[in-house]
Design a protein around this nucleic acid. Structure first.
Lengths: 190, 190
DNA sequence: GCTATATTTGAACAATCGTTCAAGCGATTG
DNA sequence: CAATCGCTTGAACGATTGTTCAAATATAGC
């Protein structure tokens, strides 16, 4: 018996996709009610407010992204190629995903101090993801897959910067199709 | 005598700063009325709608950015250092500017097909800016300030990606203060 | 100084916003 | 079968949204 009531199973993933596509302010509670097929009372019983639902969506998005990274590393066998494949996979998912841009980045871009805790949470989760990048790079170093000269934290920073920049660029233009070689270049000059 | 009435001089700059800080959806017409000190009728006589005012703000922001780039190049004497100084200047203006992020990028992040023409305009203006970058790089090449091996368009693309990424990163964390050396690195591996 | 034209004003509009809550429903228990 | 409990429902709330417009005011021409 959860502290919060029933949940109708996949309410959070559906809310996440809608928030991810349209952002916090452009998504109305009535939009959400339709998409997740719940009446206001049920939503407010579970999440307390629109902000509560958005925070749950941020957490779900973040967790899913980390799962995808771990899955990519597991499938690739080594952490460096896993990281590469993860980045390529995200960048190529132009049509499937609600937006080519990272939901955390979109949130950091649009939220103000009026939603201070949501903004802080998005920043925190982006930092967590950067930590996962750093971990993968550190493992790649100990396995001798990459030079140990540079600080893995610094490399993760540069990856984060380029990754965010590329996803924004893809949003502004279409898929330029040269994604794979762009990522190869990215990892060489990391 | 302008086609659009009086304008109260600096209405557009003030609207631009507010839109830049809070975004399109989080900025209400009543916010704008207070900040630019105009009653609704006057605003609607001049700009037709909230979207019209936002489009005027996008144009103003874009024009001002290009002016800043040209001023930086003129002051630095050569186009390469001018470009560098422009980038450094923007990245260091953490406290003065309404947001560390580019207003065009923020718009591209938050706008959906419900404001298709605003979205398209933001994309177009971001492209224009990238063209200015390419021009500066091309001039640097003809002046022998930089190797002519690489395509200036490609280099402008990479600059755009890193620039957008860095500004987003600064928004997510604070000013990391190492901005200058970061930009030096950026221009080396362009 | 008076008329005519242009601009500003602020109250008011319908629509939508996030949110609440009494009433209804469905399962569980005695 | 009746009673109770937990959850769902959808109408309704006050606040705010973008926008309009008749009335008031300022400006210009004669």
């Amino acid at each position: 018996m959860p502290a919060t009531p029933t949940h109708h199973a996949d309410a959070i993933p559906k809310a996440t996709d809608l928030f991810w596509e349209k952002g916090f302010h452009a998504t109305s509670m009535r939009n959400l009610q339709q998409v997740i097929d719940l009446r206001p009372g049920s939503i407010y019983a579970s999440f307390g407010s629109k902000e509560g639902l958005f925070k749950a969506s941020l957490l779900h998005y973040s967790q899913r992204s980390r799962d995808q990274l771990k899955a990519a590393i597991a499938q690739a066998g080594d952490p460096l190629n896993g990281l590469k494949q993860f980045v390529i996979g995200v960048l190529q998912c132009q049509s499937a995903a609600p937006s080519s841009m990272c939901m955390l980045v979109k949130s950091i871009a649009e939220l103000t101090e009026d939603q201070a805790d949501l903004l802080a949470e998005a920043k925190r989760l982006l930092n967590v993801m950067e930590g996962e990048f750093a971990d993968a790079i550190r493992q790649a170093q100990t396995q001798g897959l990459i030079s140990s000269e540079q600080d893995p934290v610094r490399m993760a920073q540069r990856l984060q910067v380029q990754f965010m920049g590329l996803r924004t660029y893809i949003r502004a233009h279409g898929e330029t199709a040269q994604v794979v070689e762009l990522v190869e270049d990215l990892f060489e000059h990391l």
